[in-house]
Design a protein around this nucleic acid. Structure first.
Lengths: 117, 117
DNA sequence: AAAGTCCGTTTCGCCTGCGTAACGACATGA
DNA sequence: TCATGTCGTTACGCAGGCGAAACGGACTTT
């Protein structure tokens, strides 16, 4: 579908993954769990609105796990909570500038690794 | 360098990462830490021999962390230890059939995700 | 307005990871 | 031989994640 990712073979994607994780470890990235990172990606790459319940279902996590992940991301200012006006029980998860920068840098780094394959 | 990964942009690699992690969560992959997974990839994608000390240096981990990661991978039969005959202090980390299968399946899954981008 | 439902959070006990420091086994050099 | 260094592991205390269950607050239904 996307011209930019044509012919990415299993072997090359493994090498990509390896290179990126290696870089992430060396750069001492704020260590996010796989789930926390997946949550972050999900909030930034899929259309809003995002609720705790919705994220839990889509990411196959329990609600408390989502709550805790949001606590952690919030502490790093990578995501923010905002009460829903329409339904005050709900919480809307929003993006932050710092989160956008963080993911953009991650993407740039990964693209660089891919280029050096 | 590699024709198979031409023009992988920051945006597309982020989408790839997102899709793969989503799949991994849904499929309830044996949850390996980032470090454990990086270690696994390193053992399979870089040339032997691999020692605890060497892996610790290359992955920017402490030696005990490597030991524990190897315990975990060993329990899942994804990697194996073998004493070095030449220097009996050392341990050589070896690949297993199950580990090869596991990574091949991961690579296939990731390539499939990339194709569907 | 009372009963029931839904939302996100908190609490609880458990499990696993972490780095530092100390350890025994082995190798090496004087 | 024996002092010193290096190998991987273990011991320790700490920090953080996990799911199940219970919770208060907010909607909805009757």
């Amino acid at each position: 579908m996307n011209e930019n990712t044509t012919k990415l073979t299993p072997t090359s994607v493994l090498n990509l993954w390896h290179g990126v994780m290696l870089r992430a470890l060396r750069d001492e990235h704020p260590d996010l769990t796989a789930r926390q990172f997946a949550l972050l990606l999900h909030v930034y790459l899929t259309p809003p609105p995002h609720t705790v319940r919705g994220l839990a279902a889509e990411l196959n996590m329990s609600k408390p796990a989502v709550t805790r992940a949001l606590d952690r991301l919030g502490r790093h200012d990578l995501a923010r909570r905002k009460r829903d006006h329409a339904d005050k029980r709900s919480v809307l998860i929003q993006r932050t500038v710092k989160g956008s920068v963080y993911l953009r840098e991650f993407g740039d780094m990964a693209a660089r690794v891919a280029a050096e394959l």
